[in-house]
Measured scan of single mutants.
Amino acid sequence: MDLSALRVEEVQNVINAMQKILECPICLELIKEPVSTKCDHIFCKFCMLKLLNQKKGPSQCPLCKNDITKRSLQESTRFSQLVEELLKIICAFQLDTGLEYANSYNFAKKENNSPEHLKDEVSIIQSMGYRNRAKRLLQSEPENPSLQETSLSVQLSNLGTVRTLRTKQRIQPQKTSVYIELGSDSSEDTVNKATYCSVGDQELLQITPQGTRDEISLDSAKKAACEFSETDVTNTEHHQPSNNDLNTTEKRAAERHPEKYQGSSVSNLHVEPCGTNTHASSLQHENSSLLLTKDRMNVEKAEFCNKSKQPGLARSQHNRWAGSKETCNDRRTPSTEKKVDLNADPLCERKEWNKQKLPCSENPRDTEDVPWITLNSSIQKVNEWFSRSDELLGSDDSHDGESESNAKVADVLDVLNEVDEYSGSSEKIDLLASDPHEALICKSERVHSKSVESNIEDKIFGKTYRKKASLPNLSHVTENLIIGAFVTEPQIIQERPLTNKLKRKRRPTSGL
């Protein structure tokens, strides 16, 4: 017993010596996670971090007073192994002897410093981030199933929210409404489509400006004509009531908005009720001829604005009016007729031209339509002016008669200019590109209106002035400009410049 007691005391002394060697000089306990400095002193990692955080910048070693920084600290694995072995020896000594260790306080702390507990403390002390800490805590505590279930439920809930957000973003663009038309193969669909197009076009005519009305009406008319041609002859009974509906809707729209509806009346003529396609083609032919005449008058307007600064050229074209007008009339009417003589009366030419125009518009179905009313009214106005011209010709002399006839021709041009508003800008460009020769010939008609105004002003003063002067240069210039014009009389060319000069002198006297 005595020997055993001596041996136990010796073992205890050895353990105490080893414990003092492996103590931390700051906390005076076994080193936890030993860290060595540049001066080869060993301290606990937790104690050194606490010391360095007390001051900004480098701190001093507690043993040798040298500078220490966080970067200079290094882990010493050898001392950590020695500490672990010492703890194992102490545990074995207690089991063999059955005696508690003399320094129970220190031993209890040593026992608490088992490797499992050290790992837990290291995970908390090290600044490795929240995710690494959570992982280490889960690994160190596998015995708690409640914690695992809560963490898994949190992760699953987070994943569910992310997935639901993604699915919502994908589903939202798919919620856009999609309209699908289910059509049938019955023959009544074509008639319904035609009526739908006509009503939609009328609404567009009321909303859209004048520049786009003609294009819309032309497209709708083409669509309706194609649909009529596709149907068989057996379905004509269905077409006639639908066309009557079209007429009623167009008349109502014309009564409500007459000014807006006139812009599309000329282009919509071939959508009118037709028994066969031949009647629609004839109407299209007549409309094309009318559009040609209207576009020519538009060309004359532009030329008149350009040549208004040259009064000499405008005056020299006075007698070329009849010849150029004959050529335009021959090209406007498709019928083959002989040219009228140069010395014939211009009023007779106008009456013949009106007689040619009237039969074209005397179809029984055309008179029933609303768009032809505008053309009939313009023709009636022309006839009224010609009836007035006959009365004026009986009273005035030959020279005054010529000037009045020219004035009436200008009035006719004004009437025809009203129809110019109905034609589109695209048709003007096509006419100029296809028929430049006709445009040059028809330019002379509009330029002549300037000389007509001068004659009217001469009649106000009650006299006409003449001068025997020749202007050969002007006649040559005008002959080169206009290709299809005829030779003019030299006496009238000489008379016109004198009248304008005298007018300039006598205007201030009349004002006084």
Rank of each mutant, 00 (worst) to 15 (best):
L159Y: 09
S123Q: 06
L82R: 00
S157D: 14
M128H: 13
S153F: 03
S140Y: 04
L3N: 15
N144P: 12
E143L: 10
G160M: 06
S76L: 01
Y130K: 10
L137M: 02
I89L: 14
R71G: 15
V162Q: 10
E85G: 13
K65V: 12
K135F: 08
S114N: 13
L30I: 11
F93L: 12
Q54S: 10
A92I: 00
Q126C: 12
G129E: 13
V83T: 02
S59A: 07
K20G: 07
K50Y: 02
E149R: 10
V154C: 02
Y101T: 05
Y105G: 09
N112I: 09
I31F: 06
I125F: 13
Q172C: 06
N106Q: 03
F107A: 13
S151C: 07
N113E: 15
E75W: 15
Q54K: 08
L159T: 05
K175T: 10
C27R: 00
V122S: 04
I125R: 09
P145L: 11
N113G: 07
Y101S: 03
E33P: 02
Y130H: 08
G98D: 02
N106A: 11
D185I: 04
C44L: 01
L28C: 14
S146Y: 04
N113C: 05
L3W: 13
M128Y: 12
T190Q: 08
E188P: 12
L159V: 11
P115L: 07
F43K: 00
N16C: 02
K70F: 05
E181C: 03
G98H: 15
S127G: 08
L138N: 13
T37G: 14
F46G: 12
E100W: 06
E33W: 11
G160I: 15
S151T: 03
L165M: 06
V154D: 11
V162I: 12
S72P: 15
S140H: 03
S104P: 13
L30E: 03
S177R: 08
T161L: 09
K20H: 03
R133W: 07
Y179D: 09
Q139A: 12
K168T: 05
F46L: 15
R166K: 07
K168R: 06
C39A: 00
S140C: 05
I90K: 15
T176G: 09
